[in-house]
Computed example of a mutant assay.
Amino acid sequence: MADRRSLTPASTEARKLGYVAPPAATDLRTILGDAAFRTFTDGQLPAGLVNEAARRVLTGIGMPELQESGLGIAAHRDGFLAEFSWPEAGDEPESEGPFFRLGRWMGGTVVLDGTGGQVLRVPANDDGPDGVLVAASLEGFLTMVALWLVGLRIHATVDGDDERYALRVNIRDELWMIDEVGGMSEAWIYLLENE
């Protein structure tokens, strides 16, 4: 038997023993397929996007073209990563930006903070889920989107109320483990609780 310290989640021996890799942003690429993703060159990124971790995600993993369950990310279209002006009536973010448009989510706009690298959901009005911060990083956001999509797909197949409740709790806990603050945003669980 292999020494436990030498096991990596992806190793053959680890899989034989039942170890599973922790969730990762690349899981979304596995779910949606490579063709759904667009990677960017440094020259294609806005000058105001100075967060190095976000730049690495955009030039490495990339961003998907996605329209599912109220979340729309249009990485292949014009206007993606366009600068976004924060609405005066909206909840103020902790950062001063600049902010860049990633897509739409349940009526709100999803933006990337070019300085801090956080992903925020700017509600269009008082309807829908509360919460501005949905992920502390772009990589965390993609990881949580993958988990959220899988959870929604499983949820659609579950019949019993107890099982649906247990699944919601599990999804909420897993999101929290990825991002303790962003994972608590109501946006992640809203569809599961309001069917």
Rank of each mutant, 00 (worst) to 15 (best):
F99I: 12
D179W: 14
H76M: 12
S11C: 02
D113Y: 03
G103H: 02
I61N: 12
D78K: 14
G62M: 10
G90I: 00
P9N: 04
Y190N: 02
G160S: 11
P93K: 14
V132M: 12
R4W: 13
E83A: 13
A156P: 15
G18H: 15
A89Q: 09
T59N: 06
V132S: 07
T157S: 13
L138V: 10
L192C: 03
A156V: 13
G117W: 03
A146T: 04
H76R: 10
A54Q: 07
D126W: 06
P98R: 01
T59R: 12
T109D: 14
R55I: 04
G108R: 00
G18C: 15
H155G: 05
E13L: 14
K16L: 14
G160H: 02
E186W: 07
S137F: 00
E186P: 05
L81Y: 01
E174I: 01
G114R: 00
L32A: 08
H155I: 12
A166Q: 07
G183W: 04
G182D: 09
H76I: 02
V111K: 01
A74W: 08
A135C: 01
G151W: 08
R4G: 00
D91S: 03
G117H: 05
G48F: 13
Q67Y: 02
V158E: 11
I171L: 15
K16F: 12
R101D: 12
P23D: 08
Q67T: 12
D173N: 15
L152A: 08
E163A: 06
P123H: 08
Q44W: 00
T39A: 15
E94S: 15
A10S: 10
D113C: 11
G131L: 09
I171D: 10
T12S: 13
P93N: 11
D127L: 09
L7K: 10
A36D: 02
R164Q: 04
L17P: 06
F84D: 02
L175D: 09
R168L: 07
R104T: 06
V181M: 09
N51R: 05
G18F: 15
T143K: 13
T115V: 03
W105M: 02
I178Y: 09
I61W: 09
E92Q: 15
I171Q: 12
G43S: 14
G108Y: 00
P87Q: 04
T12C: 05
R29C: 06
E193M: 05
